[in-house]
Design a protein around this nucleic acid. Sequence first.
DNA 1: CGAGCAATTGAGTACACTCAACGCGCGTGG
DNA 2: CCACGCGCGTTGAGTGTACTCAATTGCTCG
Lengths: 253, 253
Amino acid sequence: MIPELSPISMPRVPVEVLRARCSTCSMHQLCLPMGLDVGDMDKLDQIIGRRRRVLRGATLFRIGDPFVNLYAIRLGHFKTYQINPGGEEQITGFQMAGELLGMDAISADRHHCNAVALEDSDVCEIPFSSLEQLLGEMPTLLRHFHRMMSQEITREQSVMLLLGNMQATQRFAAFIVNLASRYEARGYSGVKFQLRMSREEIGNYLGLTIESISRLLSKFKKEGWLRVSNREIEILNPVMLKAITAGTGDACA
Amino acid sequence: MIPELSPISMPRVPVEVLRARCSTCSMHQLCLPMGLDVGDMDKLDQIIGRRRRVLRGATLFRIGDPFVNLYAIRLGHFKTYQINPGGEEQITGFQMAGELLGMDAISADRHHCNAVALEDSDVCEIPFSSLEQLLGEMPTLLRHFHRMMSQEITREQSVMLLLGNMQATQRFAAFIVNLASRYEARGYSGVKFQLRMSREEIGNYLGLTIESISRLLSKFKKEGWLRVSNREIEILNPVMLKAITAGTGDACA
DNA sequence: CGAGCAATTGAGTACACTCAACGCGCGTGG
DNA sequence: CCACGCGCGTTGAGTGTACTCAATTGCTCG
């Protein structure tokens, strides 16, 4: 079994179905509780706030900002990171279209991390107070929301496993496998995709240096497991990558 | 600022007040929403299930168990850990009296980690389906529950920061400082306390080996920052420990 | 075309790991 | 009562993986 790094993995639902069901916020996770009837879906639709464009490199929210909205990513990619007292950042996750941002802010009514767009992106604002009110009226939505928060907890536990237990090669393989599975779950190719983040950001996330990431990419290329061209990735040997991720791959050497 | 590792830090409320307000489950976090009126508190009280004793080394729940209850720790300490594909464990947290276990299980209706008592402990079972129903009726409780889940997310992010960014010395200092602050917040001494976990468990949690932990303890002792006797810890230089945790301490060498 | 940034590659180093021996406390059994 | 074994923790010596520092290449964009 592959350690599930995937933030809030998404059930496989055809995109068209989602679009049809949720006009303003199609494709993001809050719209997935399939038990919702049309009326409920409308109510959910109505509280969704304005759409907002976030340009590459721009900050969606930062540490200490008052917590007002959750954000559903409609399009694009984000990174979230914390700042340690020394001023260095630690990336805590990469989020893609369909995922939800800001759940860590509920606890203290302030954001606990920074969220920055890795490319030009679109988000929907979801006013949390409205959402919470709605949750009280719609048990199905409530259940779903709890699932999503719980999945975020689970995802982070997997990252702890990665950072606490794995060697560099294994970490990197796990990272690639995780990205692939998330793209696949979203209807994109799980074999060929673009890295939206820099080598430095990958290294930061995985607790490694940029040089290590570079060497790992070279190695994976040389071994014939990956085709790499700048940020374009093609997985040539998924079985091997999964084996390494699982710690089974003796080829970790 | 000290990286907040504390799982679900607890507001400072005198224990007696809590006991007075919540008969069966006094002292755990679910009983803390101070906005609850007496009637609501009674309702919450009524859904709390049976108490259960978990002996040292015994398992409260394990990976794959169907998710039925959350558990409020009334007394004692637990560890939660994941198992990687190679069969090794990675400890994801240490929990003490007043904290809540099992929130990672909501997402998939199965537990995602194992929970084992570090000493003879008491827990309250909280049937999640009853709780969720109640959440729909009690906005204050709903809010509080979301805060708790969010705090768990925040806590794990801090551990990611620790594992991804910090050196051994800093990790260990952060660990001690975190424990101290949690004990203090609970009304115990934040200066002198007992480690409930073995060196091996600390090392596992911090992504270090047992030997490294042992050496760090010796070093901290030699430097005069800690008094150490087996599992008994006394903090002699809290300022220095906090400085190291913050990365300010040049004495990291 | 050139400036500037991102990524690669190489050489040397250091921090934490591995392996191994030893000490200590404690419970058990002779 | 002491001897012994066992688990847990400490300490030392040597090693290796990933880091640091540095030089070079390649890409992007003005």
